[in-house]
Simulated assay, not measured.
Amino acid sequence: MPDIADAVVETVGDRRSLGGVGQSFGAFTAPLVAVRRPVEALALVAGMVPESGESPDRWWSNTGYTEAVRRQAARDGGLTGSDDPYVACYHDVPRELPEEALSKERAHPSSAASAQP
């Protein structure tokens, strides 16, 4: 995680009057960056909000994510937890938006990053 925060801080450079956004896994990185480069606002969008010192790997079990998804899927006919991104993430937007987003998908952080608190 510190390496990811280092890369963001380096990219930001000397800019001032910053706002930060951490989406999903980015909620682990955004606060680390905000401590090093103070921001005027910090927004977490569907963020995996960790407890202090919690790794992304531990977040899943610590939050009860798997059990919550199982219960909700039982209520909604399996929509929650679907492996289909058009069902799980993009169910309420015009099809061309997820098609564009998915065409720009990148590799997820490494297993080493996911193991770091």
Rank of each mutant, 00 (worst) to 15 (best):
T11H: 09
T11F: 05
V12H: 01
D14F: 02
R15H: 08
R15M: 02
R16K: 14
R16W: 00
R16F: 04
S17T: 11
S17K: 14
S17P: 01
L18P: 03
G19P: 00
G19I: 10
G19L: 01
G19H: 12
G20H: 02
G20I: 00
G20T: 02
G20E: 05
G20W: 01
V21Y: 08
G22C: 01
G22Q: 00
Q23V: 14
S24T: 01
F25H: 06
F25A: 00
G26P: 02
G26C: 06
A27M: 06
F28H: 09
F28W: 07
F28K: 04
T29W: 04
T29N: 05
T29M: 05
T29I: 15
A30E: 09
A30G: 09
P31I: 10
L32R: 13
L32H: 10
V33Y: 00
A34D: 09
A34R: 00
A34W: 00
V35Y: 02
V35C: 08
V35N: 11
V35Q: 15
V35K: 15
R36T: 08
R37L: 04
P38W: 07
V39E: 01
V39Q: 07
V39I: 06
V39C: 07
V39K: 04
E40R: 15
A41Q: 13
A41I: 13
A43D: 08
A43L: 12
A43C: 10
A43F: 08
L44E: 04
A46H: 11
A46P: 04
M48G: 06
M48Q: 11
M48Y: 07
V49H: 03
V49G: 05
P50L: 07
P50D: 09
P50E: 06
E51R: 14
G53E: 03
G53Y: 02
G53M: 06
E54F: 04
E54Y: 02
S55Y: 04
S55N: 02
S55P: 03
S55A: 13
P56K: 02
P56F: 12
D57W: 12
R58Q: 14
R58S: 13
R58K: 13
W59A: 05
W59H: 12
W60R: 12
W60N: 07
W60K: 12
S61E: 13
N62Y: 05
T63L: 09
T63I: 09
T63W: 05
G64K: 11
G64V: 11
Y65L: 14
Y65R: 15
T66Y: 01
E67S: 15
A68S: 13
A68Q: 15
A68K: 12
A68I: 08
R70C: 03
R70Y: 07
R70D: 13
R71H: 10
R71S: 11
R71N: 09
Q72K: 14
Q72R: 14
Q72L: 13
A74H: 06
R75F: 10
R75P: 05
D76S: 04
D76H: 03
D76T: 08
G77Q: 01
G77R: 01
G77P: 00
G78E: 11
L79G: 14
L79Q: 11
T80S: 15
T80P: 06
G81H: 03
S82P: 09
D83Y: 00
D83E: 11
D84G: 06
D84V: 09
D84K: 05
D84S: 07
D84E: 09
P85D: 05
Y86C: 08
Y86M: 15
V87P: 01
V87K: 02
V87F: 00
A88R: 14
Y90T: 12
Y90W: 15
H91E: 09
